[in-house]
Amino acid sequence: MNLTGRSLSTLLDYSVDEINFILELSHKVKKEKKEKIFPKRLANKNIALIFEKSSTRTRSAFTVAAFDEGAHPEFLNKSDIHFGKKESTKDTARVLGRMYDGIMFRGFKQETLNNLIQFSQIPVWNALTDDHHPTQAFADMLTLQEKIGELKGKKLVYLGDAANNVAHSLMIMACKLGMSFVVCSPKSRRPYSEIISQCEKIIKETGAELEFSDNPVRAVKSADCLYTDVWISMGEENNPECKERIEILKPYQINNKLMCATENESTLFLHCLPAVKGMEVTEEVFESKNSGVFDQAENRMHTIKAIMIATLT
Rank of each mutant, 00 (worst) to 15 (best):
M1L: 13
N2D: 13
L3M: 12
L8S: 11
L11D: 02
L12P: 00
V16F: 11
N20V: 04
F21W: 08
I22A: 10
I22P: 09
L23D: 06
S26T: 15
S26I: 04
K28H: 14
E35P: 10
K36A: 15
F38W: 12
P39T: 06
K40H: 12
L42Q: 11
N46M: 13
F51P: 06
K53Q: 13
S54D: 12
T56L: 15
T58M: 05
R59M: 12
A65E: 11
D68K: 13
H72N: 15
E74W: 15
E74M: 14
F75H: 12
N77F: 07
N77V: 03
K78Y: 13
K78C: 10
K78V: 13
H82W: 12
F83H: 09
K85E: 12
S88F: 04
T89P: 06
D91Y: 00
T92I: 06
T92S: 04
V95C: 03
L96K: 02
I103Q: 02
K109R: 08
N114C: 00
N114Q: 12
N114A: 07
N115W: 06
L116M: 02
L116R: 01
F119R: 07
I122N: 06
A127N: 07
A127H: 09
A127L: 05
T129C: 09
H132A: 11
F138N: 08
F138S: 09
D140W: 08
T143M: 05
Q145K: 14
E150C: 07
K152I: 08
V157S: 00
Y158I: 10
L159V: 07
G160F: 04
A163M: 11
N164M: 05
V166L: 08
A167S: 09
M171C: 03
I172Y: 00
A174C: 06
K176F: 03
L177W: 04
S180W: 11
V182Q: 08
V182N: 01
V183F: 02
S188K: 11
S188L: 11
S193E: 15
E194D: 15
S197Q: 14
Q198S: 14
K201P: 00
K201L: 06
G207P: 08
A208N: 00
A208D: 05
A208I: 06
E211W: 04
N215W: 02
V217W: 11
A219G: 03
V220L: 00
K221N: 05
S233C: 01
G235Y: 03
E236M: 07
N239W: 00
E241P: 04
E241Y: 03
E244P: 01
E244K: 15
E247A: 13
P251Q: 02
Y252G: 01
Y252E: 03
Q253M: 13
K257T: 12
M259R: 08
E265A: 14
L270I: 07
H271S: 05
C272M: 10
L273K: 06
A275P: 02
V276R: 14
K277M: 13
M279F: 12
E280Y: 09
F286Q: 10
S291F: 10
Q296V: 10
A297N: 09
A297Y: 09
R300H: 04
M301R: 08
K305D: 06
K305M: 13
